[in-house]
Simulated assay, not measured.
Amino acid sequence: MTVKQALRAHTVAQDADTKVRAVRARTRGARVNGTSVRGDARTGDVGTEPEGEGVRTASAAPAVTVAAGRAAQELGIRRAEFELAVHLGQIAVVGVPGGGRPRVHEEEIARLREQPGFPDGLAERVRTVGTAEGAALLDIAPARFTRLARAGCVSPVTFYLNRYRAVVWLYLADELAAFAAREPDLLAGRTPPGMRSTLESGADWRPRNWRSQRIDRLLNRTRDPWVRAAVQASALDPVQLAEVVDDPYERAYLVRVRPEPVFGRPGSLAAREAMGQLMLADDPDEILWRRVNLTLELDGARADRPAPRPGEDGATRAATAVRSGADTRGGTGLVPFAAEPAPPPADAGLSTSAAKAAPTGKGLLARLGRRGRGTG
């Protein structure tokens, strides 16, 4: 560099330093006078705006959100993996005012990208396997894997329909690895007698375990008492629901606020029909368990607010939005919901005479009715 070039560079640096000092001085003066400073990065001009109501400052600016497809691309996962991660509560989403598909905050994407092992870590946490791949992961025969799944040792997280419209269950690879570490004795040797008798009776716990986990995760994403009641009601068919909830307005409201899959129902008609069938409890003790839970949640919902009547929909919908506005966001921001314990036997704590008696009081058992599918 020549002497002239050095002097020219020094002069430019001094000019820039003078401008920076001037900007800082104006900023301090603006803060004293109750104004905010707005700089134009492209031109170097600085302007001022009065602070107060109706003016957005940098701290009050709304967070930027992106669509699910773009979020999946930025996280390096497939769309199906993204939707499963949302269902599992690993990715937080926010609802869109007036309806529409949920969106993702850019801060949430940045948080996930900063996690150790990104992007492979997130993809691995939502990796699912079928029977053959799951058996290979556990180093057992596929037939033994199927027996373990039917006996309820491992629970499916999702499913799809094959070309024959048969349900194909999928399992989280992480959960299978945890099961192998927790129960190594079940992977080799003879099947325990209790499990063998369960399998010989034709039991298959896969649909029931899928329902239980699905309900638990939906409950974990909402605090609204009516939505929680609707989640429990989703496992009962219309006849069972009418026996527990005799008010038609309450039944209609439960259907209206029932949470749907975050990104819509399965695409094909066959998949929707399969989803509808799998969501319904089909065992007497499971039905009783869901009726008990629905009754308890319904008591809390009625105490919180009544179900809307004709002409009250607008006000009630607004109240619901205020109460559960943050509940559309999955993940760690919500109060955790304890995992559901194993449902009690059908006759536990309930005598045969009480089970068959017509409801004559206002107690829990009377309101349950104990009529319906599989209960005699």
Rank of each mutant, 00 (worst) to 15 (best):
G39T: 13
D40F: 05
D40N: 15
A41T: 06
R42W: 09
R42S: 12
R42C: 05
R42E: 12
T43W: 12
T43Y: 10
T43C: 07
T43E: 06
G44W: 07
G44Y: 13
D45M: 15
D45F: 14
V46H: 09
V46Y: 08
G47P: 03
T48C: 11
T48Q: 14
T48L: 14
P50Y: 15
P50S: 15
P50N: 14
G52S: 10
G52Q: 13
G52I: 11
G52F: 13
G52H: 09
E53M: 14
E53C: 12
E53I: 15
E53G: 10
G54W: 15
G54D: 12
G54A: 14
G54S: 15
G54Y: 14
V55C: 08
V55H: 09
V55P: 04
R56G: 06
R56E: 07
R56S: 04
R56L: 07
R56D: 07
T57V: 04
T57K: 02
T57H: 11
T57R: 10
T57F: 04
T57N: 02
A58E: 12
A58P: 01
A58V: 10
S59F: 12
S59E: 15
S59N: 11
S59Q: 10
S59K: 12
A60W: 12
A60S: 13
A61G: 01
A61D: 00
A61P: 00
A61Y: 04
P62A: 01
P62M: 01
P62F: 02
P62W: 01
A63P: 08
A63R: 11
A63M: 10
V64D: 03
V64P: 00
V64A: 11
V64M: 05
T65R: 03
T65A: 04
T65N: 00
T65G: 01
V66F: 05
V66A: 05
V66W: 07
V66C: 03
V66Q: 06
A67Y: 03
A67F: 03
A67E: 08
A67H: 06
A68G: 03
A68V: 10
A68M: 09
A68T: 10
G69C: 03
G69N: 07
G69Y: 06
R70L: 14
R70T: 12
R70A: 02
R70I: 05
A71T: 04
A71K: 03
A71L: 05
A71F: 04
A71N: 02
Q73K: 06
Q73M: 03
E74R: 10
E74N: 02
L75E: 02
L75H: 00
L75W: 02
L75V: 09
G76R: 03
G76S: 01
G76T: 01
I77M: 13
R78D: 01
R78S: 02
R78H: 03
R78P: 00
R79F: 05
R79P: 00
R79N: 08
A80I: 10
A80V: 13
A80H: 13
A80P: 02
A80N: 11
E81T: 13
E81P: 02
F82W: 06
F82L: 12
E83H: 09
E83P: 03
E83Q: 13
E83K: 08
L84K: 08
L84V: 09
L84Y: 06
A85C: 03
A85N: 01
A85L: 06
